[in-house]
Simulated assay, not measured.
Amino acid sequence: MMKWAEVRELYPNKFIKFEVLDYNTIDNKRHVNDIAIIKVINDGKEAMKEFSLCKEGQFVYSTKNEQIAIEVVKYIGIRRSS
């Protein structure tokens, strides 16, 4: 379990694939408190590949960002008319 500030200090200018362990929701945004690092990624191309492989609760984020704030989007779905 790590804080984002610690991750940014250890891995400057990298992408991090991580799992969210703890967060607070404020105004439809999840402000992440604690994460578990899955993988450190060196370039944007690899980051996009890893992003496409993320499971629920996993994200890829750049350490250039001071905080992690993820917008919560409700899934509405598509209805089929009969």
Rank of each mutant, 00 (worst) to 15 (best):
K14S: 06
K14G: 02
D22L: 10
F18P: 03
S82V: 11
S52N: 14
L21P: 04
I37F: 00
P12K: 06
A5S: 15
M1E: 08
S82Y: 09
G44Q: 08
D43M: 06
E46V: 12
N28E: 12
N24S: 10
I16T: 01
I70G: 02
N24E: 13
T63R: 06
I37D: 00
R79D: 10
Y23N: 04
T63E: 01
N33L: 14
K17I: 03
E19L: 04
F18G: 01
K55S: 08
D43C: 11
T25Q: 11
V7S: 01
S82N: 12
D34Y: 08
F15A: 04
T63K: 05
K14C: 06
L21C: 09
M1R: 08
S62W: 06
K49V: 14
I26H: 05
V60C: 02
K55G: 06
F15C: 04
V73L: 10
V60R: 02
V7R: 03
F59Q: 07
N13M: 07
R79W: 05
P12L: 05
F18M: 13
V40W: 00
G77H: 11
I26K: 10
K45F: 08
V40G: 00
I26T: 12
Y75E: 15
N28P: 04
D22K: 15
I26C: 02
E50M: 08
E50Y: 02
E71N: 12
F18R: 03
G77C: 10
K49A: 11
M1T: 12
V73M: 06
N13E: 14
N28T: 09
G77L: 09
S82L: 12
C54F: 04
C54P: 09
K39G: 04
R80F: 12
G77N: 12
E6C: 06
A5H: 09
S82P: 13
N65V: 07
V60S: 01
Q67R: 15
N33Y: 05
I26P: 04
K55A: 08
F15T: 07
A69T: 12
G77V: 10
D27N: 15
F51E: 10
A36G: 06
E66R: 11
V32K: 00
Y61A: 03
S62Y: 05
K45W: 04
D34V: 07
A47G: 06
K29H: 15
P12T: 07
M1F: 07
I35Q: 01
A5Y: 08
E71P: 11
R79Y: 09
L21E: 12
I76E: 12
K39A: 13
R80N: 13
D27F: 09
Q58C: 13
V20T: 14
T63M: 05
H31R: 11
V20H: 00
